[in-house]
Design a protein around this nucleic acid. Sequence first.
DNA 1: TCATTAAATTGTT
DNA 2: AACAATTTAATGA
Length: 226
Amino acid sequence: MAELAGIPWLHGLDANERAVAVDDLKVVSVATGELLCRVGRPATFWFGVIDGLLKMSNDTALGIPITFTGVPPGGWFGEGTVIKREAYRYNIQALRKSVVAGIGVETFHWLVDRSIPFNRFITQQLNERLGQFIAAREIDRMGDPDARVARGLAALFHPLLYPGVGSLLRITQQELGYLVGLSRQRVNEALQALQDQALIRIEYGGVRVLDLDGLRRHMQRVARGG
DNA sequence: TCATTAAATTGTT
DNA sequence: AACAATTTAATGA
């Protein structure tokens, strides 16, 4: 299976553990708009994106719809709820036709109980995502559209959380608009501004990052009001 | 492989 | 929201 190569945490496991994980691994194809997780449903799987793009949000719930983050290829999510054996606190929806992998809750705990590399992966995952949510709060409070787009892109290009992305992120400006909560034309405007600063290059159906550190500095600089 | 057509995406108003 | 221009994907010879 070529798909296994794109699953980052598999590499840290020993032969036995990997065999158990692969045996339990399920790979499904989801259509655009399809929901993988619903708020309130018990967590049964720990999911990862092989190909495509997902959106983590809490719409359909009462109150204002909030998009937490997008999940591009290489990203794994849901460990928080799986660890606590709770119900999902968000919806996961496919922004486009995607291929998603998952392992069951029991297998997840089995790995947590015996593999140190697996625990390291989970800890790092939680830590990096916490950093992203803190940055998101700061920037959304400021409300500068260019900064929101810069932040959204910097998050999706995170090499540890989303190793499958590389330097070219496959995302349309429409999809990016759904993720950061802006109109397509406003996203287009922001992208051109970022391109003018040589931080990214706009490509058909995607965005290439030229300077990830610069992108991060940009969103922080704007968030401070500079 | 190439040319033609349809569909998707982008840039602009 | 609507439009034109551009790029990609699909089709068939």
